[in-house]
Design a binder for these strands. Structure first.
Lengths: 242, 242
DNA sequence: CGTCAGATTGATATTCATCAAGATCGGTGG
DNA sequence: CCACCGATCTTGATGAATATCAATCTGACG
């Protein structure tokens, strides 16, 4: 898939894009780079001059907590802009790390701002992605807040399924999530051991199958969504009129 | 304090505002309304046509979780826009409720969009508030994710102190936070009983005093920030050049 | 075949929720 | 003025969810 293809899919699911707008986005100069799993894509407390579009792989927002542990506050999937916030906030408050090997396309802030100036509707669309990012983050907060491990896990699976489906990386309730159980623990705020036991429960109940190599199949979506208390409104899958 | 005064303070702490921009914001027609504690300011799954500016009081984003419990994913203080996200996302994914009695000024989306069209820099500034909101949300996620109750509480106190200070509602380490312990529990994802015990620990260690009527004094900021592992970068208190 | 990362399992420790019973306090009506 | 009331804060006791530690198992890969 081309660099821009995933972005266009992600955006056009939320709003109509004109041919001209697609052209403008496609014409943006991009610097493509590969990251190995574990590498830092964007460091914390930095002042980037470009923003990254995740093209392949999974990345995560990482904030270190006091005692050496880390908390991942978000998973990023292909089509997500990794640090659009730096376009407006000078200093990053978190790092973005590669959770699997990743392909990232960088677009300079300057170029991006020029395009927005020439096409305010694109600006609004990018603003919308910031809003969406906030909504996804909120869902994450709820998730780690007051729910038990099983609910958290179910919610994460629902969230990823819908987001991957948008960019064509999930279909018929199947997808690949090649994250280790330790990484899942960092995402859900639970220990790796408990992730393991939680997955076993989901398997035992025949709701989800998730093998060691990361192939995930949702065997009973309705039950999964019920366990998760999942409400997809936050994903804003209803198109906005212009 | 006038309706717009708190908003101007909040914004001008992050970027320069010209006299013209201030005039535009002040000239926006507003519909002022009072809410009693516990009332819903913006319902969930609604399609608002205006956005609320919190002028006085504390509000919270509320998402209900399965078993009747609620999770507050954010506290809003005077100067905060309560639901700017609805300007771009049609349907609200959460409710906003009054945690104390609140004064809210509503501004219609239409008027707001007109102003932005005429003054792109104001649009960027509002976009920045969306970004900022995301950063505050992220800090919240970290907070409820993997930290113990004491750390969560310390973090919330630091967060509120800085945000209240910006709008002139905190100074010399003193502020009023008239939230019940049950409400604090909903914010931190812990039970009300545990909130009580946590506050006692902070009092016993002479880090914070917090009496029943909501007067809070940070007696040892450095120790509090150390307990919290607090890093204020996310509040973006460094002004952006234009 | 050896190695290594990750998954799995069992045993124990900790944190926090829950339940239940006072204590405190501001307000309210007699 | 006083008795009462409801809401909130406080305290103690018990139990459940999850962390932590340690050991073993598995599969990929050189």
């Amino acid at each position: 898939m081309s660099d821009i293809e995933v972005l266009l899919r992600m955006l056009s699911r939320r709003d109509e894009l004109t041919a001209e707008e697609m052209r403008l986005l496609a014409a943006l100069p991009k610097r493509r780079r590969l990251f190995a799993r574990g590498e830092t894509i964007i460091p914390s407390h930095a002042e980037p001059t470009e923003c990254g579009l995740l093209v392949e792989g999974f990345a995560g927002r990482e904030i270190m907590v006091g005692d050496g542990g880390r908390q991942l506050t978000a998973v990023k999937v292909p089509g997500d802009l990794l640090d659009l916030c730096t376009l407006l906030m000078r200093v990053t408050d978190h790092a973005v790390v590669a959770l699997t090997s990743c392909v990232v396309s960088f677009i300079s802030h300057r170029e991006l701002l020029l395009v927005i100036e020439g096409c305010p509707h694109l600006g609004r669309l990018l603003w919308l992605t910031t809003t969406l990012d906030g909504a996804i983050q909120r869902n994450m907060s709820v998730n780690v807040g007051r729910r038990d491990a099983l609910t958290r896990m179910a919610n994460l699976i629902c969230d990823l399924y819908h987001r991957l489906e948008i960019v064509g990386l999930a279909e018929r309730h199947a997808m690949r999530i090649p994250l280790s159980q330790a990484t899942l623990g960092d995402l859900l705020g639970i220990s790796a051991v408990h992730v393991n036991r939680t997955l076993q429960t989901l398997r035992r109940r025949k709701v989800v199958s998730w093998n060691t190599s990361g192939d995930v199949v949702i065997r009973d979506y309705n039950r999964l969504a019920a366990i998760a208390g999942f409400d997809p409104v936050y994903l804003n899958l209803v198109k906005l009129s212009r």
